[in-house]
Design a protein around this nucleic acid. Structure first.
Length: 414
DNA sequence: TCTGGGGTCCTAGGACCC
DNA sequence: TCTGGGGTCCTAGGACCC
């Protein structure tokens, strides 16, 4: 090895949420730590390696994690903080190469081919990146180096925690073929089961199945892709991320919701959160809204509507969402999760649906946005939600602070 | 062990148009 | 009368990822 044949780096932060918490609270160091939802329906978002030794892993219900590792410290996630630290991580990565492809908040591909005149090998760059991350944000990361993206990704997984692994160019199949299929990116429980029926357990087994068989079993796109990966072929270049295609908010309730009134109240709150997300993403507007409903038995349905124009403010989204609820025919079935997603995104100036009171709506929305910008999203609350809160907490009427209220109906002037 | 929240992409069927 | 073929858009659901 050596040189720049293995120019694609996959940088993956180790137990990212846990390590960020440790940065802020040194008493969390050297002991099992679990970051996750603390409520009755919470799940683990990130577990320290000490906790993993007790069988705790992400996506596990927090209640189960407590059973397995009672000695762990359990911490509620602080996503805003992680986003902030993530920016610092990406700044480090981008100081090495402009070709950084973010995969998630704590993971990225970096193509370092451009450094070939300044360093002796890609591995050397990997070591340097790890050192920088260790000193600047102060976090451990693992790095995989390879000639292709998916091999680099598999390599970083096997370098964890706090290591580097290079898969020399030309020797990919030696590395790949003994690995279990579900280590491949894109192979989850369903694909693993379908492949098991074909007698496939390892990546090497996939390589021996004819492409046509994979395509008929898994769909053309997926089958073809898997076939290529098993041969070590992955021509995808490292590219900077395109803009988001959708923005969504959802919530699982500690206790199931029953009845239209309760559902509407929660959806109004979700529309408001979505409005904030769209605004912070650059005043985006959506052509399509999708309602997501998960029932007590975990069955999940979606209902969507594509509009002539585009919507971005709560008072515009609200009537659409109500129509979607009507179409979902929820009745009195207990609901455990509600979500609203915005897609078909455009910038504010495109796709406005002209309306007679456009100017007035804009003025109200702009005023509300300005207040939220200064005082936080909680400063502007739909009157209807306020009524619900008052009803829920009769003894303490809300203070008449600097808040601005508008009604939750489709007409903001009502 | 009863299962979060935020995303991406694919598939299949139907509507609609030429 | 019993019928085509292709393209595009929309909707619903599902697999998968971190």
């Amino acid at each position: 090895m050596g040189g720049f044949a293995e120019h694609i780096l996959h940088v993956d932060m180790d137990a990212f949420f846990v390590e960020v918490e440790r940065l802020h609270d040194p008493s969390l160091r050297g002991r099992p730590v679990v970051v996750g939802g603390l409520g009755p329906r919470g799940v683990v978002a990130s577990a320290s390696y000490e906790a993993r030794r007790h069988g705790v892993h992400s996506a596990m219900p927090t209640a189960e994690a407590r059973r397995r590792c009672p000695a762990a410290r359990f911490v509620a996630p602080r996503h805003a903080l992680y986003r902030e630290v993530s920016l610092a991580v990406f700044e480090v990565l981008e100081s090495f190469s402009p070709l950084v492809e973010a995969i998630s908040i704590d993971e990225a591909f970096v193509d370092v081919a451009g450094l070939r005149l300044h360093r002796t090998s890609a591995v050397e760059v990997a070591a340097e990146i790890r050192g920088r991350l260790r000193s600047e944000p102060g976090l451990p990361a693992s790095v995989g180096c390879a000639a292709t993206k998916f091999v680099a990704k598999l390599a970083s997984a096997r370098a964890k925690p706090d290591g580097v692994l290079v898969v020399p160019a030309g020797r990919e199949l030696e590395f790949l073929h003994p690995l279990p299929v579900d280590e491949l990116w894109g192979v989850g429980a369903a694909t693993k089961a379908a492949l098991a029926e074909l007698g496939v357990a390892t990546i090497g087994d996939v390589a021996r199945i004819p492409r046509a068989v994979l395509e008929s079993r898994l769909g053309v796109a997926h089958g073809h892709h898997l076939h290529d990966l098993a041969q070590g072929r992955d021509p995808r270049p490292v590219t900077r991320r395109a803009e988001a295609r959708s923005i969504s908010v959802e919530e699982t309730f500690a206790a199931d919701l029953v009845g239209r009134r309760r559902i509407d109240d929660e959806l109004l709150g979700l529309c408001e959160r979505l409005e904030g997300r769209l605004r912070r993403a650059g005043a985006l507007r959506a052509h399509t809204l999708t309602l997501k409903v998960r029932f007590q038995d975990f069955t999940t349905i979606t209902r969507s509507e594509t509009l002539e124009g585009a919507v971005g403010f709560r008072f515009e989204m609200w009537p659409v969402v109500r129509r979607l609820v009507d179409r979902a025919r929820i009745g009195r079935r207990p609901v455990r999760l509600l979500g609203v997603s915005a897609s078909g995104l455009t910038s504010r100036d495109e796709g406005r649906q002209p309306a007679l009171d456009d100017g007035a709506q804009d003025a109200i929305a702009a005023a509300a946005a300005a207040v939220k910008e200064r005082f936080g999203d909680g400063a502007v609350v739909p009157a209807r939600l306020l009524e619900a809160r008052v009803a829920a907490d009769r003894r303490r009427p809300p203070s008449e602070s600097s808040s601005v209220y508008w009604r939750g109906g489709s007409n903001p002037m009502e």
